[in-house]
Design a protein around this nucleic acid. Structure first.
Length: 415
RNA sequence: GGAGGGAUGACCGAGUGGCCGAAGGUGCUCGCCUGCUAAGCGAGUAGGGGGUGUCAAGCCUCCUCGUGGGUUCAAAUCCCACUCCCUCCGCCA
């Protein structure tokens, strides 16, 4: 949720919002609704004040005065209740509007849409051409995935990962988590089923409701990322200043409906409804969040680089940031079969956008402040396998990346 | 699944209708005292929103005693629902 005071008083805030191409007039509507609400609030509070005084006097009044005073206070109460209804309506109206307002884009974010991200750097050597088999065909050939029965039991975009691929998957998780622990991240295996409230406070509802699976008659929802439970880890809490940054590494399966992606990425397990992911989530002091963002990006880069995958870093443009991010970097890895870079990981700085609803603060010398939250993919396991299968296939052999060998116990798989 | 008990500030804990945003204690901060430390003495110390302000201190005000409703002129206190915790019984491992 955005900072209404900043929207009112800081022209840069409004500019950052409008760069995300919100509906024309939305910002003015919000400002109008906010103004109205505050006016009504002042009236209600003045009435409550009178009511409070009147009630306190009754407590002190002599017995023979009480009846009159109670009658007067009762009249005040009726008036107050009418105004409170107006206030409730104003609150609802403002809330409905304000939830549609995205986090302002950082001034450094480039303008434009999906294709307008700015490539900050390209790292690694791309192979000259496509591999003999694309990742889907290679995985088939090697017996690394089972799709026929998975689709029968669960539907399209489901797959079983099988045989040595499972050991590579576990190796990836172990290697990445070990590395994050060394970087000061606290590992967490969180619940993947959460209540609606957790979805709302993490900022996923109402916007992304269609992307989420419902369970138990709508009581619970399967998370699309462990970012959701990790953001709930400190809801309503106040950090001591020296407890920040607090870094967490979530390890969990992720579930996504992938509504609206029919026909896209139908090969292999590039885009599936269920996958495992190691996610970084950081609570940072407001003045330290940009540095923390760079740090998360550096971790992502080192993981991809150590896997020997050629990648580029993209500074995502305003139109592709999503509602919550003020700034976002994607790591795109070269997918030889498609001859282009595809997204593997991503990291965002939400600033105080999500902390505002979560009520997560840090105690400071000059009062308490909302924390900043950041998140980044350490390893989207299934999709990482996809890239490995293309970059590490050698005829009928899958070569295990060197950094993973201590974890797999084998160097290669040959069929 | 059945029966009962509970949720109060950073923490412990008192408070069953009004002078209670809340006794007392611990912790923390500042000061005094003391070779140092400990002890002792004194003062301060919840959060969030709105208004006002040289948006800085301050001042005014509202809300918050698990969450949301209700009763009442007035609710930490009474009623209802929900969430969570504990105890006992049953069940399962």
């Amino acid at each position: 949720m955005i900072d209404l005071r900043a929207l009112r008083e800081d022209p840069a805030c409004r500019a950052g919002i409008e760069r995300k191409r919100v509906a024309p007039g939305l910002v003015d509507e919000v400002l109008g609704a906010d103004d109205h609400r505050r006016r009504v609030l002042a009236e209600v509070e003045a009435l409550r004040h009178r009511q409070n005084l009147a009630s306190k006097e009754i407590g002190r009044a002599a017995p023979d005065e009480r009846a009159d005073r109670i009658a007067a206070a009762a009249a005040l109460k009726e008036e107050l209740q009418r105004h409170e209804q107006t206030l409730a309506a104003a609150d609802t109206a403002l809330r409905d509007l304000v939830l549609r307002v995205p986090n302002p884009a950082d001034p450094a974010v480039p303008d434009g849409g999906e294709d307008d991200g700015v490539v900050l750097r390209e790292v690694g050597t791309r192979p000259p051409g496509p591999p003999p088999l694309d990742h889907g065909a290679f995985a088939d050939r090697m017996g690394f995935v089972e799709t026929r029965q998975a689709v029968e039991m669960s539907g399209s975009r489901f797959a079983s990962i099988t045989r040595e691929a499972v050991l590579v998957e576990l190796a990836l998780v172990n290697w990445v988590v070990g590395r994050l622990v060394a970087e000061g991240f606290v590992p967490v295996v969180p619940p993947v089923l959460v209540r609606e409230q957790a979805m709302e406070e993490a900022g996923f509802f109402p916007t992304d409701r269609t992307q989420v699976y419902e369970v138990d008659g709508g009581e619970l929802f399967l998370v699309g990322t462990s970012e959701i439970p990790l953001s709930a880890l400190h809801r309503g809490e106040h950090f001591a200043a020296d407890a920040l940054p607090a870094r967490y590494a979530g390890i969990s399966p992720c579930f996504r409906r992938e509504a609206g992606t029919y026909g896209k990425d139908t090969t292999g397990i590039f885009r599936v409804h269920q996958f495992d992911k190691v996610e970084m989530f950081v609570y940072a002091a407001p003045d330290g969040s940009d540095a923390e963002h760079e740090r998360i990006l550096a971790v992502e880069e080192s993981i991809v680089a150590d896997l020997g995958l050629p990648y580029r870093v993209v500074d995502i443009a305003t139109g592709d940031l999503g509602a919550a991010a003020a700034r976002k970097f994607d790591l795109e890895v070269w997918l030889p079969s498609e001859g282009r870079y595809r997204e593997l990981t991503s990291c965002s700085n939400y600033r105080d956008f999500s902390a505002r609803r979560l009520g997560t603060r840090v105690r400071g010398e000059s009062g308490n402040h909302l924390v900043h939250t950041l998140n980044g993919t350490a390893c989207a396991v299934g999709r990482t396998l996809v890239f490995l299968w293309e970059h590490y296939q050698d005829g009928d052999t899958f070569v295990v990346p060197e950094v993973l060998r201590p974890y797999t116990g084998f160097d290669a798989v040959t069929r």
